[in-house]
Design a binder for these strands. Structure first.
Lengths: 258, 258
DNA sequence: GTCAACTGCGTACACTGTACGAAGAATAGC
DNA sequence: GCTATTCTTCGTACAGTGTACGCAGTTGAC
């Protein structure tokens, strides 16, 4: 679900980092810093993108920059704050296109842009965002997402809930897809191979006839997709259902019949 | 998203553990084992429920049982297999009620039972389930979930996708709720306190007027719920939208008009 | 030239999963 | 009862983690 990391410290310090504002005038005496916030964030992003959050240790980031591990603590209070800045930074990659026309097209765009972002930076899926770092890109993202559902008859509360619903949906769908992709890599087995390795033992142990629906549906799905889980299809199916559901609410709001 | 843990080993050994089948006759010579699979799983569940998956280390589980850490490896090939058995065990807590009447009531029950389970065992949210351990309760759960959408006009593929959609939705909704609950505990601040601590600095740093929708909607939501995120409301809202979406599909299937 | 202020970073600590192998216990065969 | 065999328990070790502490060395003001 989440790493525990999030900048737990002083809001002033965190916000200064996120918006790249120096709170104090630069010190007159002493050596100039050899690194910068941006350099460290870039190095950390490179590692997280390539090898995952688990591989992004302070030592590894420092190595990447040819520095000692403790040096990073001159720039960030801790790993949590580094992660906060990484998050705000990649949110900056969102094109944030505002699609003209219907709200549904706009909300669809929100879902797809978020999906692309998660696929490009799968470590995002591990970052808790219930109290997001209030950097420029986090703010702009929320504003853009609200724009998609503004002026279509929803209340403010419904607007917020709808945006959260779409975000949550995309998060879950991509998590499932990425999990499936990673497990193939790690295990060196496709889903079909994995299944075939289990069936004979399962058959010997349990009464497979007790699960007739699972057997029927599992077989059909397996044949259709050559895998128990086809992520592309699942994403499209789920998004269509979700937007249909929102559609019903919007229709109800614009033409209430009771 | 996920801990990397899952029993990566030999299917025969994993399935034997899950179904509690001894593959070989019990050994004649040597001391009798002092522990049992069930004892270890019970201890591990107690720790995970109380303090989270992060606290559930092999050493801690062993301590709980008054044994040495390495002793556990006589019973489980590794931590992954222990987690597999834990997962199958808690799935056994699902009442798996089959609600009579409409499919929607059944699917609603599926969502709510899963929600209860996640709330009772939040560590479940951290366990990757793209290749679930094929134990008795995992199998029964899938069969029960398919029962909810059987015979309402969906194809096998749509049945599987619908069940996955509902499961994914519940996972995401509870994850968000649990995250919010935990962050309050850890930080000792309510969301409102946290927000109030940030606003003055934000105001000084950025141009808050650039985010008019966020300001308006954020304020309304904050007033309405006394928190940026009210999990009960969010769950109900999202589930209603989702089932409405499925409803549209089911209606289309039972009365195709094109 | 002196000194204060600053940066870089080595070391240390308490954790993790688990490979290895030694120590001890229980039984079979005599 | 004795020995050999087989099995269980678990101490130690290793390569990791985030980061507190404090020392060494650099820079610029006076």
């Amino acid at each position: 679900m989440n790493q525990d990391y999030s900048g737990s410290g002083d809001p002033a310090k965190s916000l200064a980092l996120l918006w790249r504002r120096e709170t104090n005038p630069p010190p007159a005496r002493g050596p100039k810093p050899a690194l910068s916030i941006d350099q460290i964030v870039t190095a950390a992003l490179k590692i997280a993108d390539a090898d995952g959050l688990g591989a992004m240790s302070m030592r590894r980031v420092a190595d990447e920059l040819g520095a000692g591990a403790m040096t990073l603590y001159r720039y960030f209070p801790g790993k949590g704050e580094l992660l906060d800045v990484m998050l705000d930074t990649v949110y900056g990659e969102l094109p944030r296109r505002v699609v003209p026309g219907e709200w549904r097209a706009r909300l669809d765009e929100v879902a797809r842009e978020n999906r692309e972002l998660y696929l490009r930076h799968p470590w995002l899926l591990q970052v808790a965002t219930s109290r997001p770092p209030l950097g420029p890109n986090v703010m702009a993202k929320y504003e853009w997402e609200l724009t998609a559902v503004e002026g279509i008859g929803l209340t403010d509360v419904e607007m917020d809930a709808t945006v959260a619903l779409v975000n949550g949906y995309v998060h879950g769908a991509v998590r499932t897809a990425v999990e499936a992709r990673q497990v193939i890599q790690r295990s060196g087995m496709t889903d079909k191979q994995w299944w075939l390795a289990h069936v004979p033992h399962l058959d010997q142990i349990g009464d497979l006839e007790k699960y007739p629906l699972s057997a029927r549906v599992g077989t059909t799905v397996g044949n259709e997709f050559d895998a128990p889980y086809d992520s592309e299809h699942a994403f499209e199916y789920g998004l269509a259902r979700l937007l249909d559901g929102v559609s019903a609410l919007v229709a109800n709001r614009s033409a209430p019949q009771d």
